[in-house]
Design a protein around this nucleic acid. Structure first.
Length: 171
DNA sequence: CGACTTTGACCTGCGC
DNA sequence: GCGCAGGTCAAAGTCG
């Protein structure tokens, strides 16, 4: 059952290698998959329309209804990590606690996209989970932001594996 | 009863 | 300016 496979494309494609160590506080995820094989690959999500975010999250002030960024809303660029997982289930048990706050149908995709937020106080990490319409066995998970707190559940040996993984920011 | 999900409405950005 | 698509809110419902 323990058949995990992480496939990351060439890291050199990412902007600056130094950025990795700087950002590696806690991984935005620490997969704890019991019985689904995961082939992971990062996606270039930098091409997300024109909108961009920086890693200063709290400065976006009140995300409520998007108000309050009027005036100087240089939308902050956040870290975004995307990877694909071949799995039967949509929700990976990554050790953190998430609360679903939305679900939307996505164009050109038969499956809806789900939006989750980390429930830890003060942690504003978000993630999106979407299944590919082309290959419904593939789940695309996009993390946004960095956890400012440790994993809440024990993640067994995966934590160890993850510490050796390099995560490639897609902005 | 608290934590979480569901779901429709609302807001914003972008392309035409 | 308008319409579409994506993202978020929040009330109501569900579950342990």
């Amino acid at each position: 059952m323990e058949n995990y496979q992480f496939i990351f494309p060439n890291p050199s494609s990412s902007s600056s290698p130094a950025a990795h160590s700087e950002h590696r506080q806690y991984f935005p995820f620490s997969l704890n998959m019991d019985h689904h094989q995961s082939s992971t690959s990062n996606q270039d999500y930098s091409s997300r329309k024109g909108s961009d975010d920086t890693n200063e999250e709290e400065t976006t002030t009140n995300p409520k209804l998007g108000i309050s960024n009027k005036g100087d809303h240089k939308k902050a660029k956040k870290h975004r990590y995307a990877f694909q997982t071949r799995s039967q289930v949509d929700i990976l048990d990554d050790g953190y606690r998430w609360r679903k706050y939305g679900q939307k149908a996505v164009k050109n995709n038969n499956f809806p996209r789900s939006y989750y937020r980390c429930t830890h106080q003060g942690c504003s990490v978000k993630k999106q989970v979407q299944r590919l319409s082309k290959d419904e066995g593939v789940v695309v998970t996009t993390y946004e932001g960095i956890h400012s707190h440790p994993i809440e559940k024990s993640t067994d040996n995966f934590e160890h594996i993850l510490t050796q993984m390099q995560i490639f920011t897609a902005y």
